[in-house]
Design a protein around this nucleic acid. Structure first.
Lengths: 143, 143
DNA sequence: TTGCGTGCAAAGGTTTTGCATGGCA
DNA sequence: TGCCATGCAAAACCTTTGCACGCAA
């Protein structure tokens, strides 16, 4: 079994390790490159992009684009089956990804499907907004 | 009154007309350029980007990024105040934008705010999925 | 006439491709 | 050994910037 993952190379491992280490936030190809270089495990840009593509196909990472930035953002996707069945909230300020295990969203999905004929792609859909922590910080700043 | 819209030029008008004409789907800077050129109303790329930026600031268009594409997508934003208070569904297949005027979503927002401490950005959040029409077409294809 | 608008050319940044070399299995 | 993986260099793209000229007000 290999699931199309290919050879086990130190480059692939380094990239995957970094993604898992930062699974709670998103990273860019450039930030992966920078980080690995600082760690003395430099990996060519080409290789990073090629692995991100593969990981994306395998469903091991998600790809985002964040307003105001020009480069793509990647984030490790838990293989937890649950993740395919719930929505995610992404904080526009700190980038934190929150897993929303909540029956209300399932109800909304059914409603939209039944009444509006639209089949929501849970995996792809992300709610953007401001998380609790960032909202509190914002409030402090304005004091 | 000018609302920061600047001069009325034929270029600005051509771009705006095209956006309004295609208000139900998104377009890219390149597709605007192509279309206008075919219409014999060629407008420089620079100008297109500059106008899109301005329209974005004025809130007259929305900017998206769609998976699998590398260029930004723009779509005319109804000035209807309602749009700031409801969600949008975007079909991943045909690009259609559906306005979801539905009390269920408002309930969901309150719930997420009250129980999860997360303040959803309605304007930014888009539900991705497959619309009714495309789903029917898909079903036919597999026959 | 004044100052913004326009578009060419060129720069800047990200991502992809070609190709020779390196390394896993 | 046979292939895939890697990384350099260069290309391909998308978007922005500089600058001289054009045009709305």
């Amino acid at each position: 079994m290999n699931n199309g993952a290919g050879y086990k190379t130190k480059q692939r491992q380094a990239i995957l390790d970094f993604l898992i280490e930062n699974k709670d936030k998103h990273v860019t190809a450039a930030s992966i490159s920078d980080h690995l270089e600082r760690d003395g495990a430099r990996v060519g840009t080409t290789t990073i992009y090629r692995h991100l593509d593969k990981l994306l196909e395998q469903g091991l990472v998600r790809k985002y684009t964040v307003d105001g930035t020009t480069s793509a953002c990647f984030q490790y996707a838990d293989q937890n089956e649950q993740c395919k069945n719930h929505f995610h909230l992404k904080c526009e300020k700190c980038g934190k990804l929150i897993h929303l295990n909540c029956s209300h969203t399932a109800q909304l999905c059914s409603h939209i499907f039944d009444e509006h004929g639209f089949e929501i792609n849970n995996y792809r859909t992300v709610f953007y907004g401001i998380c609790k922590g960032c909202k509190e910080n914002q409030a402090e700043e304005t004091l």
